[in-house]
Design a protein around this nucleic acid. Structure first.
Lengths: 325, 325
DNA sequence: TTGTAAGCGTTATCAA
DNA sequence: TTGATAACGCTTACAA
């Protein structure tokens, strides 16, 4: 591959000048530009980003750590993040922690070693301390780490309240919540708190199930639902903490021939686009996934540029009525 | 951040020695190792991968270009690719082309400028020539570019034949195929060819619909199905070129109250894990997604190491019977 | 066994 | 306005 030296040689100027043209710094005559650009064209020259990054101490790379890209919610989120990063001249280094502590630690290490300009953390298997050691612009999704690391989340409590209220208003009298493990330090647990609060306020019977600490295991969802219907065959309302869990619930109901929404109502959370693929389409609490992705990138960029950023970003949710309620 | 110099200073040796310890080159006394590792530990030193990459002319980064990570098939594929890359000490730079020519071109350019060690191409909006200019290890998924760029695909023709045969054997007499745009240069079009061949061989009526050239638009799938049922209300078998399309077909049937599989049978393609979430779960032709991902990474690595690789990699598909047939 | 010094391809400082 | 030259942090001949 041709280097800046080759371009300089061909254009009959110094590398400094080529660099200046490349970065549009200082005064540059039209004639000079034409000459240099011409040489670049001829050589099919592309500046080496590795060298640039090293020299400037800035890689223009953002690291993203999430549990699984293959999970529809994170897949959509990652898509928007990449898109927004791209529009801002940034690249995306993708890491799947698979909710494995050592993998997540490795990934953080690797991203630091790669001198990424910032890290978007969507996986949270480690203790707060581990994230404090990062010493890089960080933004967290769905977890508050400390007072000086910005975080983004949807309005989990409100979403949980909306969902629970809807079920009760629609006549459900025996509610179940299925969500993530309570020991995970994530803000989405607020959904569960809201569920309990509202159910108690309204005096409605309720129970709660949760996944293993290594959530996102599709097989497990099936087992949980089986357990639910075994122990409480008369549940008539399910608030699932994700649309995927809700879809499993829907399927489980249909398999035991309980009509949805007549016999039992289901509401999910997230608002993944696949929810409308189910039959009936799943009622859900929609998080603004695209906005979350954009904001995450923006918060990294602001920090990179040394600008102050707000620490708390609670984005509004919206009830999206489908056919399961 | 501490550099190799700081480590050298603290350990009381030269940078060369530190580098040697770092890379485990040559003879190193236990005592020395302890000393150097100790210094690294104390300083919380991590070698700067940018500098290493520049120096070695090797970034240990693989670029991946796909249409959308948010599409379940590509999401799963990307997950496996990242995982396998990680196990081999490689990082993944993710690019979503969104089937936009200029975006795809930009991404290729960017990956080259970033000196990635190789590119896995899963998006194919450009002409063959564009890919030839890459001059880097490349492996293609589902498209044959030339005789010297390795490609991976599932046994599309066989899969298409299996699917069509199943529908006919199960008694369907009026078949429809829904797939990607015929002008896209992708091997998955073989599924359609097989569909037509088999239907004709068996003397069964058949028709074909296809998406826009910018496929993967979920809204469009709905329109296509509406069109299908309007023009051919008596179709009794649908071969969809992806599980997502199949899911849309299933939903469309249920909405117009045609029973699946009694009145109309549906079979998809891909074998995404979400297919089992549908009710009934979707019968499909399963591609070995994990294997495809691994192989893609391996083919890049082999090329990076200068080893010869086979050009054609047709992976077997498998009929996965669900409830829609 | 260890160290000096050149090089990887840029950018940035400072003269001219 | 342009050009040497020294960084950036690491690897690697080549010496010692």
């Amino acid at each position: 591959m041709p280097t800046i030296k080759d371009v300089a040689l061909k254009a009959g100027v110094s590398v400094t000048t080529v660099s200046r043209v490349l970065n549009n710094r200082g005064y540059l005559s039209e004639e000079l530009k034409v000459k240099v650009y011409g040489a670049m064209e001829e050589l099919n020259y592309r500046p080496n980003e590795l060298a640039r990054s090293l020299s400037r101490s800035k890689s223009n790379i953002i690291g993203l750590i999430i549990p699984h890209v293959s999970h529809p919610f994170f897949g959509e989120l990652a898509g928007h993040i990449e898109d927004h990063a791209y529009r801002n001249g940034y690249k995306l280094l993708l890491c799947n922690s698979q909710l494995d502590k050592s993998k997540e630690m490795d990934h953080i290490d690797m991203l630091r070693a790669s001198r990424v300009d910032g890290i978007i953390m969507g996986s949270h298997t480690l203790e707060v301390e581990a994230y404090h050691q990062i010493h890089l612009p960080v933004v967290t999704f769905d977890r508050k780490l400390s007072d000086n690391i910005p975080y983004i989340c949807s309005d989990n409590y409100h979403g949980g309240a909306l969902a629970t209220t809807l079920l009760i208003d629609k006549g459900c009298r025996k509610l179940a919540h299925i969500g993530g493990h309570p020991h995970l330090n994530v803000l989405s647990l607020e959904r569960h708190r809201a569920f309990k609060d509202i159910a108690e306020q309204r005096g409605v019977w309720h129970t709660s199930l949760h996944t293993d600490i290594n959530g996102f295991n599709f097989q497990e969802y099936g087992r949980l639902l089986e357990q639910l219907f075994r122990e409480h065959p008369d549940v008539d309302g399910i608030f699932a903490s994700s649309d995927i869990i809700a879809a499993f619930a829907l399927k489980a109901c249909q398999e035991i021939e309980r009509r949805v929404p007549e016999d039992i109502k289901i509401i999910g959370y997230d608002g993944i686009s696949l929810r409308s693929l189910m039959m009936p389409s799943i009622t859900t609490i929609r998080q603004p996934i695209e906005e979350i992705g954009k904001l995450a990138v923006d918060l990294i960029l602001e920090q990179v540029e040394g600008n102050p950023v707000a620490m708390e970003h609670v984005l509004p949710v919206e009830l999206e009525v489908g056919g399961t309620t």
